[in-house]
């Protein structure tokens, strides 16, 4: 029930804005390592603008979402999700269509999420991780389909442990999760097809 008068508005023009988000994310997905800007939108608490834009564009009545601890406790954010997206929140990450990680500290192992199945690899979890910075200068080297030349991406998520998990995720192709890194209004995507390695200046 919405009683909270702080309730924020959604997109002013949902059709147009969500198409824009979709287009930008598609580009970022097709060219891993590309950092794209998403349209501006009101947000709540610690949620980055880009994360909110992703929620408003991708989540609907039929989406199942898993939230990291910090986000789960944010009452206003939960109300906002329920009101604007109508999605259901699940406690079980392996059944989630999307996962939203508010803080890197709360990031579980990627293996807890659904990698999809042989018949429907597309039913894997899309994991949105909020990061404090995102840069294509330095960081890990990306290789794979859609990556031309020396493409790099730097974000605080790339720890040795994460790279190990990513490697395992990449190995099980065509299964595996896709990761969206959100920072401010920006997003970069790591599709399961991409290989991460050759860490420079870490």
């Amino acid at each position: 029930m919405v009683s909270n008068t702080e309730m924020i508005k959604g997109f002013d023009n949902p059709e147009y804005a969500s198409q824009q988000v979709f287009r930008q994310v598609m580009n970022a997905m097709a060219r891993p390592g590309t950092v794209v800007d998403l349209p501006d939108v009101d947000t709540v608490g610690s949620l980055h603008t880009a994360s909110m834009a992703l929620c408003l564009s991708f989540f609907d009545y039929e989406t199942t979402v898993w939230l990291s601890d910090g986000l789960k406790k944010n009452e206003l954010f939960n109300q906002t999700l329920q009101f604007h997206c109508g999605c259901s929140i699940t406690e079980n990450p392996s059944t989630a269509g999307f996962a939203l990680i508010g803080d890197l500290m709360d990031l579980p192992s990627l293996s807890v999420f659904s990698p999809g199945n042989e018949e429907y690899p597309d039913r894997s979890t899309s994991v949105v991780i909020q990061v404090d910075y995102l840069s294509h200068m330095g960081g890990v080297r990306l290789q794979g389909p859609g990556v031309k030349g020396d493409v790099r991406l730097d974000a605080p998520v790339f720890t040795i442990d994460f790279l190990q998990q990513w490697n395992e995720n990449h190995q099980i192709f065509p299964l595996g999760v896709d990761v969206y890194l959100a920072c401010g209004r920006q997003v970069a995507v790591l599709p399961r097809t991409v290989m991460l390695g050759d860490v420079r200046c870490m």
Binding site: K9, G10, P14
Partner: peptide, 8 residues
């Protein structure tokens, strides 16, 4: 008034 959710 302002919209919280535009008419859809």
């Amino acid at each position: 008034y302002t919209f919280i959710r535009v008419p859809e």
